[in-house]
């Protein structure tokens, strides 16, 4: 029973970690209609920003979180219009052009990280690294709880913005039909830049937590891109609420299968589930995908 509780807790926390960088990915798809392959690179760069701040300034990972928000928000705000322009260009198949652009961006950022920080695996210390809390016989790793709380906070903030503000209404209108939104007075290009900036900021912050919980090197970005894409497909592309549910499902399945069947079967089970969901419900588990 103790192992079962620990297994479920591990799974929920893994789900929270994956959700932390998948939510922004979903939002970007919903508004810009771009599958952003650069998501893993933003996670990696967030980790390296925290590593730099830790080694150069001697500050812990948590101090890097607001810095990551500002730095990556600004970078995302600048890149957003470029992606918007490519996605809405009059060339043939702009969706594929945008896909190629984000893949190129991913490659560029990965190469940049390799040049700046080298090939070594790095780690970021925080005040909660390695700390845990015992509740009965279950060990609660506090840093992972922070990542889970971060994912929940980001999701809650996004829901508030999307459903309780006029700006959120404009975002939803743009997601639904950008031409009509434009006719209603929404500055679609600027809104897209803001959304991409918000996404990059949140994903960079998630990267800080990833580097603290695991580690960071220039090559792990592809893994995060794959996980975010998996969660997005399982959730239904563009569904922010579905992303949290899909990430939790991912985490719990990984944990349960690894513990009770065997670690080598965990990803097999996860991708088999994805296949089944695509067969039965192509718009994702909540049927809200695009």
């Amino acid at each position: 029973m103790d192992l079962l509780l620990q297994t479920l807790l591990n799974g929920i926390l893994i789900g929270g970690i994956i959700a932390s960088f998948s939510i922004g990915f979903q939002l970007t798809f919903g508004v810009l209609h771009v599958i952003d392959f650069a998501v893993g690179a933003w996670v990696v760069l967030g980790g390296y920003l925290a590593y730099w701040m830790s080694t150069l300034l001697g500050v812990g990972g948590f101090v890097s979180l607001p810095v990551a928000f500002v730095v990556f928000g600004a970078i995302g705000y600048l890149i957003g219009p470029v992606i918007y322009r490519v996605r809405n260009s009059r060339y043939a198949r702009p969706e594929l052009m945008a896909l190629a652009l984000t893949f190129g961006l991913f490659t560029l950022l990965r190469g940049g990280a390799l040049t700046l920080w080298g090939f070594n695996t790095r780690s970021v210390p925080t005040a909660l690294s390695g700390e845990s809390l015992m509740i009965g016989s279950v060990t609660v790793p506090l840093l992972r709880v922070v990542a889970f709380a971060f994912a929940c906070a980001v999701a809650a903030a996004l829901f508030l913005i999307l459903y309780r503000t006029r700006y959120g209404l404009a975002i939803r209108a743009t997601a639904e039909n950008r031409h009509n939104a434009g006719l209603m007075g929404v500055d679609v290009q600027r809104l897209s830049a803001n959304v991409y900036g918000l996404y990059a900021a949140v994903t960079g912050m998630a990267g800080v937590l990833m580097a603290a919980i695991y580690s960071v090197n220039p090559e792990i970005g592809l893994r995060y891109t794959l996980f975010a894409f998996f969660v997005a497909v399982l959730a239904g592309l563009g569904s922010v609420g579905g992303a949290i549910l899909a990430a939790l499902l991912f985490g719990i399945m990984e944990s349960v299968v690894a513990t009770y069947v065997g670690s080598s079967y965990s990803h097999l089970a996860i991708f088999a589930t994805l296949y089944l969901v695509l067969l039965v419900s192509p718009r994702g588990i909540l049927q809200r995908g695009l």
Binding site: D2, L3, Q6, T7, N10, G11, L13, I14, I17, P141, R144, R223, L226, G251, E254, S255, V256, A258, T259, G262, S263, S264, S266, H267
Partner: peptide, 19 residues
């Protein structure tokens, strides 16, 4: 004797072994 994918989170495996 556990074989884990290189991309896996290690906590489930460590919990199992700790038990």
């Amino acid at each position: 004797y556990e074989l884990v994918p290189s991309t896996a989170d290690m906590t489930p495996t460590i919990s199992k072994i700790a038990a």
